[in-house]
Amino acid sequence: MSTLIDLFAEFALLSFVAFGGATALLPELYRVVVDNRQWMDATTFAHLYAIAQAAPGPNVLVVTLIGWQVAGLAGALTATVAMCLPMSVVVYLLFSRWERFKGARWQRAVQLGVAPLAVGLIFSGAALVGQSAGLGVAGWGFVLAVAAFSTKTKFHPLWCIAAGALLGLAGVV
């Protein structure tokens, strides 16, 4: 029970700084669940991210999987609710007032200011996932190839994921 309370408290707190969504939150999720709480090792964290990538649905599902790993079904539901509920309540209450502060200088300033920070977070998350997956030289080469391919072309990301699964299975990356 105390683990569930810890899970809820950690993730509910994080939901308030999840600018850029769950993807931008990856490095902090890692810091909390692997470094601080030691709920899982780095490899498992990378595996859970991989599973979330290969499944349909919103990005927040990686949080569901982390919750599962920590405390089973109850953990999965607790983590998901903790991540979604606080801001859902805020957005519900704030919506009728949005028209009033939308376009105000402070509102635009925060929005403009947050974007470059989110970019830094996603770069950090990308490096962290690669690192904790324990990639070798070929693995990092594949990471760069996927990054370049996905920036330059408009193929569905699932092709990259399928390629990763096959190359991994074949022992290449």
């Binding site: 996603i122 990308a126 996932v129 690669g130 693995g139 920036t151 990259c160 390629a163």
Partner: peptide
Amino acid sequence: QRMLRGIAAAGAGLLFAMAVRMALAV
């Protein structure tokens, strides 16, 4: 384990691409 490592590598690549796209849009 091998398959998930490959998918994680692809996921890391997709994240880098997303970060690059967002950086270019700033």
